[in-house]
């Protein structure tokens, strides 16, 4: 495993822990898009079904279980335990506009027309756009809490680091997966605007506020 991959995974892990901790500590999910969290839970459960068919390594198994468990726990906190604090009036992105294309594209463009492979492909396509409801919510309210910004930065960095990992693997192992690469580039590109605001504002101690 190369350095980009391990830092990418840790960044991903950090992101989901930041979010879970924020909700738990403040007893509130204000500013968090439940819809993005449902999409992420769907991404991890459909991608990691191979847990029951393929053993890769202890690291791989543990991380997969953590991602599935934490994403479901986050949805539980938003939609059940702290439901009263969920800002559903601002979480109005229509997720069927993301789900339907991801399903259709997975059926059309995949490596192998088998059940697990299509679910894996679906999860890759869906992950690339799953943050849109959250970014839409931030743009609608015009601001984000610092902790939400840190969450978004860690989550966005993870796929950017994976791109470096893929470049590294292409050079050193001559391995590449075009579906993951294209989706990963789309995913990272969606964060670019946010990355700019994060670096120019949040890192200088200001709140992330969009220009009116």
């Amino acid at each position: 495993m190369n350095i980009f991959r391990i830092i990418g995974d840790l960044s991903h892990l950090l992101a989901i822990i930041i979010l879970l901790r924020k909700i738990w500590k403040t007893r509130s999910c204000a500013g968090i898009s439940g819809k993005s969290q449902i999409l992420f839970a769907l991404v991890y459960t459909t991608r990691y079904l191979d847990l029951v068919t393929t053993y890769v390594s202890l690291y791989n198994t543990v991380m997969k279980i953590i991602f599935i468990a934490v994403s479901i726990a986050t949805c539980y906190l938003i939609y059940m335990k702290f439901k009263a604090t969920y800002d559903h009036n601002h979480d109005t992105f229509r997720i069927e506009f993301l789900l339907a294309p991801a399903v259709i594209l997975a059926l059309l463009i995949n490596h192998d027309f088998t059940f697990l492979e299509i679910l894996w492909t679906f999860s890759i396509y869906l992950e690339s756009v799953a943050i849109l409801p959250q970014l839409f919510m931030v743009s609608k309210t015009g601001e984000a809490e610092s902790i939400t910004s840190h969450y978004l930065f860690a989550l966005g960095s993870y796929r950017a680091l994976y791109i470096l990992n893929w470049i590294y693997r292409y050079h050193n192992e001559e391995i590449y997966d075009l579906i993951a690469i294209v989706a990963g580039i789309v995913q990272t590109a969606l964060y670019c605007d946010f990355f700019y605001l994060y670096i120019t504002k949040v890192l200088r101690g200001k709140k992330l506020q969009l220009p009116a």
Binding site: M1, D112, Y162, E173, I175, D177, I179, A180
Partner: peptide, 10 residues
Amino acid sequence: SFRDTTKDEL
């Protein structure tokens, strides 16, 4: 399959 080699990724 084609992506057997990258299955270790998350």
